[in-house]
Write a protein that binds this DNA or RNA. Structure first.
Lengths: 208, 208
DNA sequence: TACACTACTTACTAGTAGGTAAGTAGTCAA
DNA sequence: TTGACTACTTACCTACTAGTAAGTAGTGTA
């Protein structure tokens, strides 16, 4: 059952267009931005088609349903986010620098006048297709797991000072940063996010 | 110009149905819940009409456009929230108790499986009518102003210990609680919110 | 050079969105 | 008892939603 799907996906990735510029990936680019700016319920295939100058039917060729498109968007987003976390780890920095780099991933999103994809989908949770719901929760779990490791590193190396469970603290950091993004966006002030993020990291897991 | 509107509003409020049970207020009840659960873009007049067992046209009689309905929903919500803050103030409690009571307002929303109305609208900010945008920002400003006063009280009476600006801290508390609500909802775990809220309040403005 | 395949297009569908026009049953004050 | 008003209803409209069926130009393979 997975075989046919894999074959198809392999063919898609190996198509004649230059990989980063394929119609498929441009649909994902536009769709991703639209979800982050307007929400999954706030855009239509017609919006994407107009921006790409193709027909709606062409989009349905690449992503049969809007749910399929949504799944592909979040899958790619999660993959890229995981890569970004791996790059932070690869630097071999101390825990406080890793936390700052993590917060900056969020700031980057806001500078683009977007919301975090998963924060947006968390707000729309009750109305989104079930596979996307699963991906949202997995994304949050992965973020918490990564932060938990960083907090443990900080405690071990003595670079962070905090009391209580690393897992609980990791959750507070994720929700604190998501909330700071959510609230800063209407004000269109990146500084507002940065101040809240700095306050949060200093208070929750301040450098020792 | 405002005169005609006021007269009409006065007449509406004084109509024959018992005030709390009027069609108008039941529309607001249902609409408010739908915005908090599904988002402003996630429900339609047809949804409200079906739940109330009236026609869509009847809704348009009370609220000519969906934007009008949205404005009325957030106006009533903001009014009630302000009342709740006034009740907390009226107790004359110390600052830490006030902060706990404030966080419990959010927990109450989550127990009802809802998102904070303004957090939801903040996510949908780019797609909502301009008057609603204004009301969202005003709501956030009011919350921050109230929290700033509580933090100043705490510093004055020595019941809270924190460093830095009360205004910045107030912002972090609002965004931290909104984020905790946003993230806890997909998991359907009120405890998740309560833990994050407690962590946040203890770390940001811990009792002295 | 015939066939398969990819990446589209045109032309269409059914369903739903927000919104409106015109009519009506009941209330109430002059 | 008439006429204004409130709170609806029926019936309708246009625009847009996701989605589909059938056809086609170009490419690459047997």
């Amino acid at each position: 059952m997975a075989q046919g799907t894999d074959d198809k996906a392999t063919r898609k990735r190996a198509n004649r267009n230059s990989p980063g510029d394929s119609t498929r990936s441009r649909i994902l680019d536009i769709g991703e931005r639209l979800v982050q700016v307007r929400g999954f319920n706030g855009f239509s295939y017609a919006d994407v088609a107009a921006e790409l100058s193709v027909t709606k039917a062409s989009l349905h060729y690449h992503f049969p349903s809007k749910a399929d498109l949504g799944e592909a968007i979040i899958a790619r987003y999660a993959e890229r986010f995981a890569d970004a976390l791996a790059r932070i780890d690869a630097d071999g920095a101390a825990a406080p620098a890793k936390l700052a780099a993590y917060a900056d991933l969020y700031a980057e999103v806001l500078r683009d006048e977007r919301m975090c994809l998963c924060g947006m989908l968390a707000a729309e949770y009750e109305t989104i297709p079930s596979p996307i719901r699963g991906a949202v929760v997995r994304f949050l779990d992965d973020n918490e797991a990564w932060l938990t490791l960083v907090l443990e590193q900080g405690r071990r190396e003595g670079s962070l000072s905090f009391v209580g469970s690393t897992a609980v603290l990791a959750r507070s950091i994720v929700s604190g940063l998501e909330g700071a993004l959510l609230i800063a966006r209407p004000y269109r002030e990146v500084e507002r996010f940065e101040t809240a993020a700095a306050q949060l990291l200093a208070s929750l897991a301040g450098a020792a």
